[in-house]
Design a protein around this nucleic acid. Sequence first.
DNA 1: ATGGTGGCGGGACAATTGTCCCGTTATTTA
DNA 2: TAAATAACGGGACAATTGTCCCGCCACCAT
Lengths: 214, 214
Amino acid sequence: MLRTNQAFLSCAERLQTGEHARQVTVKTFEPGARFIRQGEQIHFVYIIREGITKCYIREDNGKDYIFEFLGKGEITGELEAIRKTPSLCNIEAITPVTAYVLPGVLFLQLMGTDSDFNRIVVEELATRIAQTCIRASYQQIYPIEYALLRLLMLQADQQVFFSKKDIADYLAITVRSFNRTIRQLREKGAIGMDGLHLDLSRKELDNLLKRYDV
Amino acid sequence: MLRTNQAFLSCAERLQTGEHARQVTVKTFEPGARFIRQGEQIHFVYIIREGITKCYIREDNGKDYIFEFLGKGEITGELEAIRKTPSLCNIEAITPVTAYVLPGVLFLQLMGTDSDFNRIVVEELATRIAQTCIRASYQQIYPIEYALLRLLMLQADQQVFFSKKDIADYLAITVRSFNRTIRQLREKGAIGMDGLHLDLSRKELDNLLKRYDV
DNA sequence: ATGGTGGCGGGACAATTGTCCCGTTATTTA
DNA sequence: TAAATAACGGGACAATTGTCCCGCCACCAT
């Protein structure tokens, strides 16, 4: 859910002190700042040094679909640099964010000359595809109760906490459905989650739910 | 929906006559043959020379989610070669298929030494991510009526024809829902598809629907 | 303090989608 | 040919999810 990539972080740090240092800058964004806009031509690639962003598509009917939360060491803008297309999605800071910024042209150059960099990017792309497929399958095939519970557990694991709206957008449901499902989970005590490998005690469940429940 | 990649095809042909020819073979598969199985360790990468395959995840509850149809020039097994993980999904021929087969190790070697090959793979991965995101968003956010209509039009464009079950699995719905939606579309004459840029005449619609309707 | 205002939770209902199952039609086999 | 059987479409109902809206509460300004 919240993706991070240590390898990229080190990589970006090295870039900043290496021969291309002049072309690599650091920018900061306040929560809520949307620094990439869907449909716009972009010329830079960002590697997140600190903070969390959400990565979402806004459909014609005004609904948002968040397909990733990007954290430390994650890259964005790379698809557009590679494909030379307008931006697929919006990127918005949800906590204060610091990011390395490099020109798309430099990114492409590095892809061609720096085989370590190339390998890291390729692995990242491959991982994203795999994750996206797994998630798309999961969310389409199981009821949201399952997907939501799974997400709450991931949040607990990773020690992060997203707003209701963001969770709802990630699951492609309304906040109303989110509320309802939370209530049902509590009432049922998460009984009947068989076949899902989601084993957790009543107490653990309560801890997860409490946070959305004050 | 049905992805193809001419660049890869040429690439594979060159491989077969180049210095690595000995390691590149050609295999054929009958419709229904599942030549990659979810969860298994795989050691080869396939590039499709001819035919169509489906690429799907089977969930614990027995439901399938098709996330891509791969046609001419598409590659598969590359994610597993890159990430060194068991297979994410099943690959099954739905028409007679001929494919180039190369060892995962050779694939990785080419990624490191052949910059053209590398670039083509990177572009393919990037495109898949973009397409997957667009589709996931679309399918989650709009009712199936829209997604189905869109799919039918794509089919017509590409001059292909998938079975009901496959279409249903692609849309993550049941065949029952598929039937119902087809009927509704016909009754309504695809009226009310605003905001979707799906403009087609009554006659065109009938042509699309007829094929599932005899 | 009092009235306004905006966010939030949830009730009630509508729309969508899935499940179960039955009757029809095609297909196979004796 | 006739019986058995397998695919298929769709009716009826259940479950899930969305939409609309109302009331509660916190916060703000007068």
